[in-house]
Design a protein around this nucleic acid. Structure first.
Lengths: 110, 110
DNA sequence: TTACTTCATTGCAATATTACGATGAATCAA
DNA sequence: TTGATTCATCGTAATATTGCAATGAAGTAA
C-alpha cells in the first residue's frame, strides 16, 4: 500500500534499506559526488551544478542531512554543506557488510 | 512529480541509483540475505520466511531479477531462485567505487 | 480427465516520492 | 530603514511504490 511493513524486518535490514534509499535517486548521488569532488564545503552552488530547481535540491539535501550523511552550516546568507565523515564511514561499513556477502557458486544451483 | 529527471544525470549516476533502489526496501534486503544464507537455491519458501503475501514477494523477486541480481529457474511447479554471481560482483564494484570515495577532512570545513 | 500445488499476473487502494512555483525567514549592503 | 540574496518551507500536482485479493498459467498426481 505504498507503506513498507518495517515492523516485520530486523533493525539491520531496515537500516540497510534506509541508507540504500538515500542513494536511490541520481540527484542525491550527484550531490554527494560533488561534495566529494570539491575539497572544501559547497555553498549552495548545487542548484547550478545539478539541473534541478532550488526547492528540489533543498529537499534532497534535507534527506541526506536527516540521515546524517551530510552537514550544513549557515554562513551569512549562504549555507555550506559537506560530507559527515564519521557517519559516512558508519554507513559504508553497514552497506559493505551486506554487499560483501560471499557468492559461493554451487553445483546443483539454477 | 514522482518522476525522476534521469536525463540530466550521467549513466553512472543513474546506474548507482538503480542498484541502490533495489536495496532500498527491507523485503528485498531480506530476500537477498536469505538467498546468501541458504547454500542451495530457494524454492519459494520466501513467503514463509518473510512475512509478506505471495504476490508481494513475487513482485520484489521480479524487480531483483530485472536488475539481474538474481536468477530464477522453473523446477516443476516450483521456481528456484539464487544470486547471479557475475552481476552481483559487477553491482558491488559499481557501488563500492561510489561508497569508497575518500573523506578528506579539511580544516576550514563546516 | 480432475484436483492440487506453486508461482506469476492483474487490478486496485493506500501511501510515498519527486518536482516546482510561491512564499517565508534570515542575513547583508546601502 | 529598503532592497537584494540565499536558502527553507509550504502547497500542490504528477508519478512511483507497496501490498494484497482475485485470478490465471503451468505443472504434478490421482
Amino acid at each position: 500500500m505504498g507503506i513498507s511493513k518495517t515492523e516485520i524486518f530486523t533493525a539491520q535490514q531496515n537500516e540497510i534499506a534506509l541508507f540504500a534509499k538515500a542513494f536511490g535517486h541520481p540527484a542525491r548521488v550527484a550531490i554527494l559526488q560533488h561534495l566529494f569532488k570539491i575539497d572544501t564545503c559547497v555553498c549552495g552552488d548545487l542548484v547550478n551544478e545539478i539541473g534541478l530547481a532550488q526547492p528540489t535540491i533543498s529537499q534532497h539535501l534535507k534527506e541526506l542531512k536527516n540521515l546524517g550523511l551530510i552537514q550544513g552550516s549557515v554562513e551569512g546568507t549562504r549555507v555550506c554543506y559537506c560530507i559527515d565523515p564519521g557517519n559516512w564511514t558508519k554507513m559504508k561499513q553497514i552497506l559493505s557488510e551486506f554487499l560483501n556477502q560471499d557468492v559461493s557458486i554451487k553445483k546443483d544451483c539454477c
